[in-house]
Amino acid sequence: MKTNILRKESILSGIKRVILTLLLPILLYLVLVLTSFEKFGKFDSFIMTINQSMVNLAIGWSMMFGISVNLFDFSVGSRLVLAGLIGVHFSQKFGLLGLILGCVVSSVLLGSITGLVFSILKVPSIITGFAVLLIFESLGVILSKNMVNAISSEHLVLAKGFNIYILIVLLFIFVYIMYNHTKFGFQIKAIGGNERVATSMGINTAKLKFLTYVLGGFLVGFATILYVSNAGTIQPKDGLGSMSIAFTPIMGVMLGMLIKSCNSVVGVFVGSWSITIIGSVMVAFGWESRLQNVIVGIFLIIVMGFQLNRDKLFKPITTKKNIQTNN
């Protein structure tokens, strides 16, 4: 009886929701299939697009909590590179475990440092991000000077075969629970909605924002493992070069959060996947691959423009309805 207190979703509307959620990537993939059924009709090709989105997905999840509380931190890339370099270094000494712990522990530390700088200085997250980015990039360059950046191929197993799915599913469960089923997640969303009101409701905004950086760092650690294992290499970047690592995942997150038919955690997956497919479409059309960011940018503007102006777009229809009801 008690279950009836709360509204239950019917199976039909559940199916509708799933279709709505996956509509975008499926449509995009159909474009690929239309260009060449022979090449993209294969299940392997379909799976490949999912695999390709995994690294960006992990980075996206790590940024999602921050973005939820309006923290935009472009230092993610520099932290990933630095944590990756440290992880690779440790892998040479302690093997796979060295890689995992090296990446995760250093990333949590770097995230905490960034959060601390943010909390102490109380400057906007973007500025904090740039400041620490410059430092972390330099540190990465210094570090890589005195060490060999090579990771041996036996330590790349985490991104191979089924391992990547296991890792991603574990990450998904963790992120999903953190975002939807913990006090932390609830309060994060409250702050993101209206910080002033949230504070007056007794939510410790400053502490939670700091924790967001720490949690973000933890997740960046796993994203780093995937990043390194996937490409088989990690190269230090300087001159703000690390920033581009964050761009594609941010687009995935923004797109994901616009998808209202599903939970944001799933949304980020759908967003990242969609953007990955757009990249593949570029190549399939024989366009320059570097046009990808341009296309994704335009795509994002269209989607956001649609989202933000949806009310206006549908206004003529609703006012008509009002008139009818008035009569």
């Binding site: 090449k39 690592i245 990955t276 570097r290």
Partner: peptide, 22 residues
């Protein structure tokens, strides 16, 4: 067959290329 220019994600770019141009 194809020229890839300054890819951000090299692995993906090469994968896509190899699928498109077997």
């Amino acid at each position: 067959t194809y020229v890839i220019e300054v890819p951000e994600d090299t692995k993906k770019a090469v994968e896509d290329t190899l699928v498109n141009y077997p």
